[in-house]
Simulated assay, not measured.
Amino acid sequence: MAQKVRIFLVILIVWAVGFLAWEWWYSYPKVNLDKIRSGRAQTTKLDSILLQAIIDYRLPGVTVALVQEGKVSYLKAIGYANLETKDSLKVDSPILVASVSKLVTALAVANVLDDKGIQAQGYISDLGIASLHSFSSLPNFSLSDLLSHESGLRDKTFSEMIFSSSRSQSLQIWGEDFLAHGSKYQTELSYSYADTNFDFLGFLLSQSENQDFETLIQNAALTPAGMVNSSFLTAWPMEINELTGYQKTFLWKRLEPKRINFRIFPSPSSGLLTTTKDMSLLLIHLLRDEMGIFHDALDWLRDGENVVPLGFQKTKINGSEWIGHFGGQAGYSSLLFYSIEADMGIFFFANAKDNEDFRIAIANQIISTISP
């Protein structure tokens, strides 16, 4: 018995040493960048905040877009898109913004359904999808339930994902399967944040309009906003992909690649591939509110007296409430928030997993520098 224990311990030690050696060999040291020594006073301060953030949080690269009084006041990218190739991260580099995608999907849904005279409190049965009546497994959700994550739907658990097929599905196939078996993902919770809500809503809208989701989202949101370099992914990885996401290693103070997988193509909840420049345009339109191209969509999403539009989140930045959304998936982290009162908006992106709330910490530093 003692001999078996010794053998087991030796194997365990060898495995641990091998794991740590592998982790070291395939990871990267922290990013070292030259300090910025010149430029306008405020711009230099903001640059310094980003440089310090890269050091403090061990980030490969970051981008920021600031919009004030209807125009872009700061647009910056610092660091690397890929630590192996040393490709620089740029403001026009393709980036994945994860759940910030929900904002674009919500605006598109609002634009399409508002034109059809369907209100947010309407039901999915109002969409006129003939095949929907063939399935009795799902309740008659309201559109606002899906947009506000109050449908009770949940995402697959970790164990369910392990034992399910690892292959990605088209939104069409996923949606048809969900119609047939979605009741098992229904809970009694009054609120349950789940990507399933938006993926299901995107599928339903596509079926209602008899149009693929990519075309629908382009016509209803991206093209009107001038976001010509943005689209929802239909395949991953891309043939030309400079961007890599990262996370901290288990032990060493280094960075290792963090792979991202998409289970649905395109994913209305998290599949937006965009650029920092395009996100600055989205901020401009959102800040224009009643005077902007999305004024009808935002009114529809406010659904009466709601201050926060359906599908949007709220958070505190520099002591006041801002509206927008966080995005975080695998090795990518982002946020987009704006304040009508302050007439200001911020978009932040890093190709690193955020386990330390660095997104909001950096946003607070930037906004407090601009508006002490």
Rank of each mutant, 00 (worst) to 15 (best):
Met1Ala: 14
Met1Ser: 14
Ala2His: 09
Ala2Cys: 07
Val5Phe: 10
Leu9Met: 15
Ile13Tyr: 11
Gly18Lys: 03
Phe19Gly: 07
Leu20Val: 05
Ala21Val: 12
Trp24Ser: 05
Trp24Gly: 02
Trp25Glu: 01
Pro29Leu: 04
Ser38Asp: 11
Thr44His: 15
Asp47Tyr: 15
Asp47Leu: 05
Asp47Thr: 01
Leu50Pro: 14
Asp56Pro: 00
Tyr57Glu: 00
Leu59Pro: 10
Gly61Arg: 14
Thr63Ala: 07
Ala65Gly: 01
Val67His: 06
Gln68Lys: 10
Gly70Arg: 04
Gly70Tyr: 03
Val72Arg: 05
Leu75Glu: 10
Lys86Tyr: 09
Ser88Asn: 11
Ser93Glu: 09
Leu96Ala: 06
Val97Asp: 00
Val100Pro: 03
Lys102Val: 08
Val104Met: 01
Ala106Ile: 01
Asn111Arg: 14
Asp114Gln: 13
Asp115Gly: 05
Lys116Pro: 06
Lys116Trp: 15
Lys116Val: 02
Gly122Gln: 13
Ser125Thr: 15
Ser131Phe: 07
Leu132Asp: 09
Phe141Cys: 07
Ser142Glu: 09
Leu143Phe: 05
Asp145Pro: 08
Leu146Cys: 05
Leu146Tyr: 10
Glu150Thr: 15
Ser151Lys: 12
Gly152Gln: 04
Leu153Tyr: 05
Leu153Phe: 01
Thr157Val: 12
Arg167Ser: 00
Arg167Asp: 10
Arg167Leu: 06
Ser170Gly: 08
Trp174His: 11
Gly175Cys: 02
Glu176Gly: 13
Phe178Asp: 12
Phe178Lys: 11
Lys184His: 13
Glu188Lys: 15
Leu189Phe: 14
Ala194Phe: 02
Thr196Ser: 03
Asn197Lys: 06
Asp199Glu: 02
Phe200Thr: 13
Gly202Arg: 03
Gly202Phe: 05
Gly202Cys: 05
Leu205Phe: 04
Ser206Cys: 09
Gln207Lys: 15
Gln207Glu: 15
Glu214Gly: 04
Thr215Glu: 08
Ile217Phe: 02
Ile217Met: 06
Asn219Met: 07
Ala220Met: 09
Thr223Ile: 13
Met227His: 12
Val228Met: 12
Trp236Thr: 06
Met238Glu: 05
Ile240Asn: 13
Glu242Asp: 14
Tyr246Leu: 01
Phe250Met: 12
Phe250Glu: 13
Arg254His: 08
Pro257Gly: 08
Asn261His: 03
Asn261Lys: 06
Phe262Leu: 01
Phe262Val: 04
Arg263Cys: 03
Phe265Pro: 06
Pro268Ser: 07
Ser269His: 01
Thr274Arg: 14
Asp278Pro: 04
Leu281Arg: 11
Leu282Phe: 01
Leu283Thr: 07
Leu287Gly: 11
Arg288Val: 01
Ile293Glu: 04
Ala297Leu: 04
Leu298Thr: 12
Leu298Ser: 00
Asp299Arg: 06
Asp299Trp: 05
Asp303Trp: 13
Asp303Lys: 10
Val308Gly: 07
Gln313Lys: 13
Lys314Asp: 07
Asn318Ile: 07
Gly319His: 06
Gly319Thr: 13
Glu321Tyr: 10
Gly327Thr: 03
Gly328Asn: 12
Gly328Pro: 09
Gly331Glu: 04
Phe337Glu: 02
Phe348His: 00
Ala350Leu: 02
Asn351Ser: 10
Asn351Lys: 03
Phe358Tyr: 12
Ala363Met: 14
Gln365Cys: 11
Ile367Glu: 08
Ile367Asn: 10
Thr369Phe: 14
Pro372Thr: 04
